[in-house]
Design a protein around this nucleic acid. Structure first.
Lengths: 121, 121
DNA sequence: AGATACCGGTATCAAATCCATACCGTTGCA
DNA sequence: TGCAACGGTATGGATTTGATACCGGTATCT
């Protein structure tokens, strides 16, 4: 059967899905959960530079979309673990490729940026 | 040889690369150039809902990073064509996969979203 | 007993980004 | 003369993102 959705259509639901994936930190969080569940502060430490507010928002969004699961243990000090769901793990495959592309092509992009003329102030 | 860059490090150049990819419209523009060069208004018409300002900004950024090229013809009415560079075409491969994932998994995500409780107003 | 630290977040406010809408200069054509 | 095509800008407001400080509950240290 043919393609049912088209991200280029403004009203297509796939548009909102792709916009969520394209949110600033989604790729980082999903990749960070690549090798197993992690706690909030582990994620915060691993994804250098993310603020707790943004991490919270990203995690909530991903949870609402069924990409990750949140498991709260009744312990002290409190422990909360985030893990990829099967759906999230299926997204990890293309996102891992994007991450690898970024890590591999840094020199190319830096070269292109260096070629830019400096704008007058 | 091992991995030279790590997107999880705050100061790693790959971080800025990945953030550029994660900009709201990059995935759309790169995918829209999948089957050949396109003009400004073709892109604007194809990527439904993008505003000319944001399209301009996205194109300029992608050009600065060496992912697309801009060719201005000296005609009337003016004609400007945008095309993927070899580097951009290499990025297209993972981004196409992301796009396909989005188009394929709309039902899963809509189901997850429907499972959400409605928040009180 | 009091002080301090861990954990998983919020609160608050500033800055960057994004969006909607209107408009512009050049040329061609009716 | 007037209007349309093209590739954008200008303006101003809405939404997202970011930096920093703080919180409540418990455990541990002194």
């Amino acid at each position: 059967m043919g393609k049912a959705y088209n991200v280029m259509a403004a009203t297509c639901p796939s548009r909102t899905v792709l916009h969520r994936i394209g949110a600033r930190w989604t790729v980082f969080v999903v990749n960070a959960l690549d090798d197993g569940p992690r706690r909030f502060s582990e994620l915060k430490g691993h994804i250098r530079g993310i603020t707790p507010k943004v991490l919270t928002e990203t995690l909530r969004s991903l949870e609402a979309d069924g990409l990750i699961s949140r498991h709260e243990y009744d312990e002290n000090p409190p422990r909360v673990e985030y893990a990829l769901t099967p759906l999230g793990r299926s997204l990890l495959i293309p996102l891992r490729a994007v991450r690898l592309w970024a890590e591999e092509h840094v020199p190319d992009i830096e070269a292109a940026r260096a070629r830019q003329p400096i704008l007058a102030p």
